[in-house]
Amino acid sequence: MCADSTRADEPGGERVTLEGRVERQLVARGSKSERHAMVLVLPDGTQHLLRRAGGNAMRDPHFEAMEGQRVRLSGRLRPGFFLVDEGPGDAP
């Protein structure tokens, strides 16, 4: 792991609730990690790569099922991704 990368299970990050549309987009273009992934696109055009604690970093059926939907998700903003811990389909 490079020095500036962040593991999903490390503490930290600002806790926020974001609302936007879930879309499949090409991420990490030109790198070994280039892939299609699920991102949350906010109304202002800001994009956040979606991750869940304990979820697969490369592919997550939980977010894939939300593709095209407008959702409200809560979690922590981390360098390079949004670590979601609450949203549609989660238990209260």
Rank of each mutant, 00 (worst) to 15 (best):
82 F>M: 06
49 L>N: 14
39 V>S: 11
77 L>W: 02
64 E>T: 08
80 G>H: 14
74 S>D: 07
61 P>K: 05
59 R>C: 03
25 Q>Y: 11
14 E>L: 00
45 G>S: 12
24 R>G: 09
82 F>W: 12
77 L>I: 09
72 R>S: 15
62 H>L: 04
12 G>D: 07
30 G>D: 09
91 A>Q: 14
52 R>V: 04
52 R>H: 10
35 R>H: 14
63 F>H: 00
91 A>M: 04
36 H>V: 12
1 M>F: 14
80 G>S: 09
78 R>I: 01
42 L>R: 06
60 D>A: 10
46 T>N: 15
71 V>W: 09
64 E>L: 11
50 L>T: 02
48 H>L: 10
42 L>V: 07
81 F>A: 00
36 H>I: 10
87 G>D: 02
7 R>K: 15
33 S>Y: 09
29 R>L: 10
11 P>A: 15
67 E>H: 00
8 A>R: 07
47 Q>Y: 04
41 V>M: 07
5 S>F: 14
37 A>Q: 11
45 G>R: 11
2 C>S: 11
4 D>K: 09
31 S>F: 04
65 A>C: 07
57 A>Q: 14
20 G>C: 08
13 G>C: 13
61 P>E: 05
3 A>L: 12
70 R>K: 12
14 E>C: 01
80 G>D: 10
62 H>D: 04
26 L>N: 13
60 D>F: 01
87 G>S: 06
56 N>V: 03
41 V>E: 15
52 R>T: 10
8 A>I: 08
21 R>P: 02
64 E>A: 11
54 G>F: 11
7 R>V: 03
83 L>A: 08
17 T>D: 00
33 S>P: 00
73 L>Y: 06
78 R>H: 03
92 P>S: 12
26 L>D: 10
56 N>I: 03
71 V>Q: 14
33 S>Q: 09
87 G>E: 01
2 C>Y: 10
35 R>M: 13
38 M>S: 12
21 R>C: 04
42 L>A: 11
26 L>M: 12
31 S>Y: 05
76 R>G: 02
79 P>Y: 04
2 C>F: 09
52 R>P: 08
41 V>P: 06
36 H>Q: 15
92 P>L: 06
58 M>V: 03
70 R>M: 07
34 E>L: 03
81 F>R: 04
89 G>C: 03
75 G>A: 03
84 V>H: 04
17 T>A: 10
71 V>K: 11
69 Q>H: 12
53 A>I: 08
40 L>E: 13
22 V>S: 14
15 R>F: 13
29 R>Y: 08
27 V>N: 15
45 G>K: 12
49 L>C: 04
38 M>Q: 14
85 D>K: 00
43 P>Y: 12
85 D>P: 01
6 T>N: 13
3 A>K: 11
89 G>T: 02
66 M>F: 00
84 V>K: 02
19 E>K: 01
18 L>E: 14
63 F>W: 00
39 V>G: 10
